[in-house]
């Protein structure tokens, strides 16, 4: 059986909220290392890869590998019943029809129990190669969100160019052009505000802003976001979570003009 207890329901609520507009039905693959999810959006342009390591739960028990086929809209309805600070426990049998969710508020002695019906999902699984990216940029997640939202007001696409001097986001639209350049900076007192650029070669790629703005719904999960780019390969947008868990998004680049 599976039994996984999260100190705060907030984590799962935020993860599901960040991905539910991108993917609808997906398997939560549970094994002894944790709970993983991989799913592509319908247009096969974006991919979500989530890993909640066993260490993120306390306790965590998973006797046998189990795929929990979940409709995220339905899961959202159930998670709405959990307060952010509630203790959340996920439970399932070895061949489950339902996922049992328990929310506990220790202050008020309230215990809520929900069973979510599961579905059989025949999911395509993609092998993501280990990639040495040409550019790795770490920046505040709210900054990245602001840039994407601002540029989407002008255009559907953004060009991302990285050099040792900085990272430039630029777009061209009907009403005009826009560009935001971030230079590397280190703030000793507020490391969350740092912009760090590791570069082995300059990169220039174009992406759909609609997807990037969608990824930025995860900004509440981490104060920083990591962008990994190489020419002609998908962008990796990573939000690191506590206990080496993560929420990653991959986005195929646009090609040609």
């Amino acid at each position: 059986m599976l039994e996984a207890r999260l100190e705060q329901a907030d984590l799962l609520k935020k993860v599901v909220d960040a991905i539910k507009d991108l993917v609808q039905d997906c398997n939560f693959d549970c094994n002894d290392s944790g709970v993983a999810l991989q799913a592509m959006d319908n247009s096969h342009v974006a991919l979500v890869s989530m890993m909640l390591k066993a260490e993120s739960f306390s306790p965590y028990r998973c006797d046998r590998n189990v795929a929990l086929g979940v409709n995220l809209t339905s899961l959202t309805k159930v998670l709405r019943a959990a307060q952010n600070e509630d203790i959340l426990t996920l439970k399932a049998e070895d061949a489950p029809d339902v996922l049992n969710l328990v929310f506990e508020n220790t202050d008020s002695d309230r215990l809520s129990e929900y069973d979510l019906k599961l579905m059989d999902i025949d999911q395509e699984h993609l092998g993501i190669p280990d990639t040495e990216y040409a550019a790795t940029i770490s920046l505040p997640s709210v900054e990245f969100r602001r840039i994407c939202v601002d540029l989407m007001a002008l255009s559907e696409s953004v060009s991302i160019e990285t050099s040792k001097d900085g990272i430039k986001f630029s777009c061209a639209g009907d009403i005009g052009n826009g560009a935001v350049t971030l230079r590397p900076n280190t703030n000793v007192e507020k490391p969350d505000q740092n912009v760090e650029i590791e570069l082995t070669e300059p990169v220039a790629l174009t992406f759909s802003l609609k997807y990037l703005v969608n990824f930025c719904k995860a900004a509440g999960l981490s104060k920083t976001v990591k962008l990994c780019l190489s020419n002609e390969v998908p962008l990796l947008v990573e939000y690191a979570l506590a206990g080496s868990s993560y929420l990653r998004f991959y986005l195929a680049p646009k090609i040609g003009d």
């Binding site: 991919l47 993609l126 195929a252 090609i255």
Partner: peptide, 14 residues
Amino acid sequence: TPLQNDLSEFFVMV
């Protein structure tokens, strides 16, 4: 407008 690539061109089904 640039064309949009497909992720399955980069990642192989397993």
